[in-house]
Amino acid sequence: MISEIAAWLLDPAHWTGGEGVLRQSWLHLLYCVFAVCAAAVIAIPLGLYIGHTGRGSVLVVAFGNAVRALPTLGLVTGLAMLYQGSAALAALVVLAFPAVLSGTYAGVNAVPADAVDAARGMGMSSAQRLWQVELPNALPLLMGGVRNAMLQVMATTAIAAYVGLGGLGKLLIEGQAIRHYDQMASAAILIALLAVLVDLVLAGLTRLLVPRGVMLVVAETGAGPRGRREQR
């Protein structure tokens, strides 16, 4: 079996062309990045707002539960039947949304209360507090949310091939249809590999974005910054 998978993967013919691994990987990646970015554009500002004001935190929980309750494939097929292939993308965006939202919210919530209090006490405006204190300190958990979202979307994109969206899932489903198990297994391995690779890139990005002083706190406590927010 292993030798068959190796043989499949090493065959250059499987890599090139319209149905090849390279193009499908690219599409897979593109869908996922698009979905997570689109979700982030709304979820990050919303999470920041909710965390900053403390208003609407119920929303974060509600979103998370609602999406978890949705059968993924049902959502994807449902939307796809209504709006055809590209609407499966919309489903991916919806899927990515709660993870980014709750990550951002949790990040702002974990900013040390005393730092925010000091910011207020020195006369920072609400916006200054958000940009200069809350956002930089929220980044570790915020990026954690983005990485979660990406992993979920990566996995679901594989299923989305059922409704005609391209990507590595397509190779997998085709392989199943024609009972080429070497192709199926290879596609599964490639999906996992791509997910790991993208996660590594995001981990690198996190290291770049998170300020050094915040990294030190995370390293010291083994978790996010200390808990916060009993309004004193």
Partner: peptide
């Protein structure tokens, strides 16, 4: 008002990222 008054809070309240 606060910018004109120095305030040392009960815990030091330093900004971890700076």
């Amino acid at each position: 008002l606060r910018r004109g008054i120095g305030y040392v809070i009960q815990q030091a309240g330093l900004f971890p990222h700076r």
